[in-house]
Design a protein around this nucleic acid. Sequence first.
RNA 1: GGAGAGAUGGCUGAGUUGGUCGAAGGCGCUCGACUGGAAAUCGAGUAGGCGGGCCUAAAACUCGCCUCGAGGGUUCGAAUCCCUCUCUCUCCGCCA
Length: 422
Amino acid sequence: MLGLKFIRTHSEAVKEALSRRNNSFNLDEVLAWDEAYRSRLGESEKLKNLRNSLSEEIGRMNARKQDAAAQMQEVRDASARIREIDQDVQDLEQKINQALLMIPNIPHASVPVGPDEDANVVVRVEGEPPGFDFQPRNHWEIGEDLDILDFARGVKIAGARFTVLKGKGAQLERAITNFMLDLHTREQGYTEIFPPFLVNRATMTGTGQLPKFEEDLFRCDREDLFLIPTAEVPVTNLYREEILPGEALPILHTAYTACFRAEAGAAGRDTRGLIRQHQFNKVELVEFTAPETSYTELERLTDDAEEVLRRLGLAYRVVALSTGDLGFSAAKTYDLEVWLPGAGAYREISSCSNFEDFQARRANIRYRPEAGARPRFVHTLNGSGLAVGRTLVAILENYQQEDGSVIVPEVLRPYCGFDRIE
RNA sequence: GGAGAGAUGGCUGAGUUGGUCGAAGGCGCUCGACUGGAAAUCGAGUAGGCGGGCCUAAAACUCGCCUCGAGGGUUCGAAUCCCUCUCUCUCCGCCA
C-alpha cells in the first residue's frame, strides 16, 4: 500500500508509475475523496473541540452547583451534527482505504520499463548447461520410469495438479529441503521459522494477496482461513502491528512450508509434470531491513538463493522483471531461472523481491531507528531459496543418464544416503 | 464442546460510586549531573495514529482530534455503565 500523504503530494509520479505497470487505476477519484475527507474531518474536529471544552465547563459548573442547562443543550446540538459529519468522514475513509489496498507498488527506478515479460532483462547467466550425447527426456518421463513420481494416483486421491512422490523421489525431496535450510541457517545467517500453513484474512491482506487476489487462494470456508500460497505470508506477518527495535534489523528468516495455489488463471498451462502444482514445497527467505539498505540486501538475498543452484551444479540465469511483469506488491524483482534440458528452456525456480515499505504499511511493521526516535516502516524482502519441487525437476533433468538413471548431486548425498536413483 | 476469570503505555501494575485520566507507582530506556571511568544516587524526559499550522520538503516545533483488545450504545461528558465480537488464562471433556 502506498501512503495517502505520498499519493497526495506526488500524484503525478504515482499516475506515471501506474501507467508503466499497465494499470488503469483511477487515482483522481481517490484524490477527490481525500479532499472531501479532510474538509469534513476539519468540521468534525472543530465541533468535537467545542464539545470537549463545554463538557469540562459543565463539570466545573456542576461542582459549584451552577445551572448548566444551556451548555448541555449546546453540546447536545453539537453532538447531533458531529454524528452526521462523522458518517461522511467514515464513508470517505473506508472508500479511500479500500482503494488504497488496490493500488500496486511503484516500480523502482532500476526496473526495466516494458509492457510484459518480453521486456524482462537477463542480468547474468551462470553455469554451463550439461551436454548430452542422447536426447534428454522430460522429468515426468524420468520420474515415472524410475517409479518415484506417480501422477495418476495423485489425480485419483486429490485431483489435477497433485502428485505423489514415492521412494527415493520422496527422500530426495526431503533431502533437498534439508540441504537448503541448513545452508541458509548455518552459513548465511537466517533464523528458521516453522509457521502455520493456514492464516487469517488480516495476514493475507498484510502481504498483498487480499483483497485483490482471493481467487488464487484455497480457503477453508468454515473458519475463514486461507492456505498459504508461500511462506512469505506467515513469516512477513510475524511482526505485523509491531515496532521493532532498530538494532534488531536486519532480521533474516528462512522457512520451509508447503504452498497452496489455486492457479485460477493458469488453465491449460504446464499441465504435465511437477512444474505447476496446487501443492508444492518451498524454502523461503524473508528479510526485514532499514529502508537505506534494502537494495543492497536484495542483491545479497538473491545471491543467497543463487548459492543453492551453484552448489547443486545447476545452470541458471538471473532475470530482472520489467514494470509490466512485476508482481502487485513488488518494487523490484529478480527471477532465477534454472536450465531444464528436458524442456530445453530456462524455467523460474526462484523469485526475489524488494517490497520496500509496501507490505510494511499494509501490515504496519515498523522499527525505531534509535531510542526515542519516531517509528518508521521497515522494508521487506523475500525470495525462494528455492522452490523444492522445481529443484527436484531440475535435478532429474540435468543429472539424467542415458540408461534412465539419475545421479544425485554431491551435496545432497549426505542428506539422502544414496548417490543414484535407478 | 462445557464452566469460570481476564484484556490498560516497551514491560509490570493502579484506576471500575462516570467529570482537568492518554492514564498514578515501579521497571526499562534516553539525556543531564556526580565520577579518572563505571556502579550506585539525583534531576529531566519517554505511547501511537490522523488532520491543521510552520516549511521548498522532511525532521523538529506547535494547535486540535482519535485511541485504555475490536465494534456499537447510554450520557452534556466513559478506561470506568450496557450490548456484540475477538483473543488470552484456569478447570472439565475430547484428541495427535
